[in-house]
Design a protein around this nucleic acid. Structure first.
Lengths: 246, 246
DNA sequence: CGCTTCATTGACGACGTTCAAGACATGTGG
DNA sequence: CCACATGTCTTGAACGTCGTCAATGAAGCG
């Protein structure tokens, strides 16, 4: 796949970087060709809104690269992030006309879009797609419920530690570093606050506290070095054994 | 369907009270017969645990009557309810061996169970079932995300009002009462607290406050009369227009 | 250099938790 | 029938965490 193809909006599905994890993961070569025919790419710059809650939404999409957020906003401005969309994650709901949440690009973002009608037609004729979508939706439901525990019962300290641990693990799995690891925060303090159900001041204070205690170190505002991953995990409030038996 | 059939565990699917809303809602008569052949009923008394998180779970099920809860518990005992299962709701995840949450009967409960293997086989051969399951899972995901907003951003007052409004609406839809309505709380104060991410004392205080202000009235501990539904809705923090345009 | 944006830090107060006592209903045994 | 225990709910008082408001700092950019 060349840069040129990307800009034309039609890299081959077979060469797609998210091919093995996205909604199309289970598709056969001929099914991929059908998808190839109806897909189109859209790019967004960091900070841009993809769609507003309540707006007509005539497409569904997969995140190809970059990060997007799903947020809900109350009349008085209180905001809660209800989902973080990473590459391969799916946006939109077949069979629904309008967006249920604000979708925002927090980094530069590329999405692989399908107009809803053709996609729904393909779903009806392609069990591999709906099977995979069901699986992904069940995973998202589990993630949402884990987040409910965090929002309802964890302290500010535990919330921050949990988020950092998740982000660290995500990057560690790519880098295979054992004791120490480091990564860039994909979210601003305010976005972290919206995700964790806190204020940005509390987020900042807790990060400073973790730094003071030597559990993490900062380079600039956005780069985190985790000195000792175990000590960070202790702060999350989660089971220490990590559910070995499951 | 006779009482006798119920006790034998095999009322006909065609006569089932949750027939039109459950995972089997889309099934054709012949598909229902196949389900009839592999299903079995289980009953639980109020307070009984259906399954513990982490335990082997070799069945999936629909709630036929009664109410069950999904809860997560931290090592130190903090608990968060992550789902409330009403009649027709589905429990369990195809393709997973163990339960992810504690499932508890809060009232007497009847469930329509399927051993996992036969059910998964049927899913593979019966698109109507996986289609419906996808739809139900997407609905649950939306509900979970709405609850994330409540847990992360609403005040105690708003949390209580939101819960009461939901329960009231649920019963009002059955009784078609307009201005005033009344219903029994299916949850204890502690269960409400676990659902709302509060302590039981705070729940009790907020209910007392709503009573003092004449927004609701209590008969006994568990029966609520909503004097003015609009005033209750005002307390939820939600949009007043109720999303007329959606 | 000022301007803007984002993050940090401090002081203070409100909201919800914690701890404790008491109310109320129900059930049990003397 | 009463005394007593038990479970659920209510209410009060003190405390603490986190939110609010405000000032300051740090980095990027015209």
């Amino acid at each position: 796949m060349s840069q040129h193809d990307l800009k034309l909006g039609h890299p081959r599905c077979g060469d797609c970087p998210i091919r093995h994890r996205a909604v199309c993961a289970r598709c056969e070569p001929n099914e991929l060709e059908a998808l190839d025919a109806i897909k189109y790419y859209r790019s967004f710059e960091a900070g841009q809104t993809v769609i507003w809650s309540g707006d007509r939404m005539d497409f569904v999409a997969s995140v190809v690269s970059g990060i997007a957020t799903l947020t809900q906003t109350m009349e008085d401005g209180r905001r809660q992030m209800v989902g973080l969309l990473l590459p391969s994650d799916f946006v939109g709901r077949p069979g629904r006309a309008t967006a249920a949440y604000d979708v925002t690009a927090t980094t530069d973002l590329v999405m692989c879009c399908f107009r809803k009608k053709p996609f729904e037609d393909m779903m009806a004729s392609t069990p591999h797609i709906s099977q995979r979508l069901l699986e992904m939706t069940l995973d998202e439901l589990d993630a949402a419920r884990e987040w409910m525990l965090l929002l309802g019962r964890k302290t500010a300290r535990e919330k921050i530690a949990s988020l950092l641990a998740i982000l660290a693990r995500r990057d560690a799995s790519l880098k295979a570093g054992a004791g120490a690891c480091s990564f860039d925060l994909p979210l601003s303090r305010e976005e972290m606050a919206d995700y964790l159900g806190l204020t940005l001041e509390t987020v900042s204070r807790q990060i400073s506290a973790l730094k003071r205690e030597g559990i993490i170190a900062l380079e600039g505002k956005r780069h985190i070095k985790v000195a000792d991953f175990d000590r960070l995990t202790e702060q999350t409030g989660d089971d220490t054994d990590g559910g070995v038996l499951s």
